[in-house]
Computed example of a mutant assay.
Amino acid sequence: MAELQHTRLHAGLYALAALLLVVQAAWFYLVGDYDRILLPALLAPLLITAALMRLGQPETARLSAYLVLVCGYLLVAMELPAQSSLAPFWLGLPPVLTLLLLPLGPAMLLNLTLTPLWLLLGENLLDLDLALGYLSLVMVAGLAPWEILHQRSLLQATDPLDEECDAIRRSALHDRLHSECERAELLHQRLAVLVIHLPQLEMAGEQFGPGARRALLGSLCDTVARCSRDHDLLGREGDADFWLVLPDTSESGALLVRQRLEEALHRAVLLDTGPVETRLTDCHLRHGESPGHFMQRLQATVQRQVNG
């Protein structure tokens, strides 16, 4: 949902920029400045095209960003030499626009590469202080996206939850399972793991897009949460493979959970993919078995499920 809102926001901003260019072209016409009408009149349809491309697949979304960037560069190249009072605004627009539309690394490289071009276009309007201000803006503006990437990497390193669903990620799953194995051995308790495979997941993403993929993952996680206990743990082992860790659970208890899950998932019907198909296998920790060997058995079970 957040990704969809982000996509619509970008498309709306591109469309708003196109509207502003239409207004600018109309203003030039009203004031009789006919020589400056052509460029905004040509750029407006390009921005509308970029807005439509932003709503498409990820490949077209990337192309839309480059298209908007080219339109912005052309507009700045036209306006910068003619603006004396607004030179700082037009000079500062390219680096900020580049950082908003491109990843941090390519954006910084492009900003530094194009610095001589913008300074050359505005050479009649610039002084040393303004040129130094431009270079400072290029460097300082890059700090904000850098800090965002830094905080995101810290969050990903510390957040145990998977990025696409409510299951915990693979590294956290292995750590928790290792602890549960040691706990079961120490307290002489039983430990079961339900191995779940979603064969529809890859097809859902390829044929119906990321929305259907997220819906399928969400349906699985919600159903598991309803059919399991509070201290049971669902983790994502692979793209379409999940482990449901069942502490202090006997073979008969694990079988009951498996049957309950199979029935609940079969009743779950999604708009794009239909009934949710799963392959479930229950595995049990053997007496004296090491956590590493148990995980190897679980991974071998996953491979058998993937191979059908």
Rank of each mutant, 00 (worst) to 15 (best):
Q189I: 01
R190P: 03
R190Y: 03
R190K: 11
L191K: 06
L191G: 09
A192L: 01
V193P: 10
V195F: 06
V195I: 11
H197P: 07
H197A: 11
H197S: 12
P199K: 04
P199W: 04
P199I: 01
Q200C: 04
Q200K: 08
E202V: 15
A204R: 08
A204Q: 09
E206Y: 09
Q207H: 14
Q207E: 14
G209I: 02
G211V: 10
R214M: 10
L216W: 10
L216C: 07
G218P: 12
G218H: 13
D222P: 03
V224R: 04
V224M: 01
V224S: 06
A225E: 15
R226L: 08
R226G: 05
C227R: 14
S228V: 01
R229G: 12
R229Y: 08
D230C: 00
D230K: 12
D230M: 07
D232S: 06
D232R: 04
G235C: 01
G238W: 00
A240S: 15
A240L: 02
D241Y: 03
D241M: 05
F242H: 12
W243I: 03
L244V: 05
L244M: 06
V245Y: 08
V245T: 14
L246V: 05
D248E: 13
S250I: 01
S252A: 10
G253W: 02
L256C: 04
L256Q: 13
L256P: 00
V257G: 02
E262C: 07
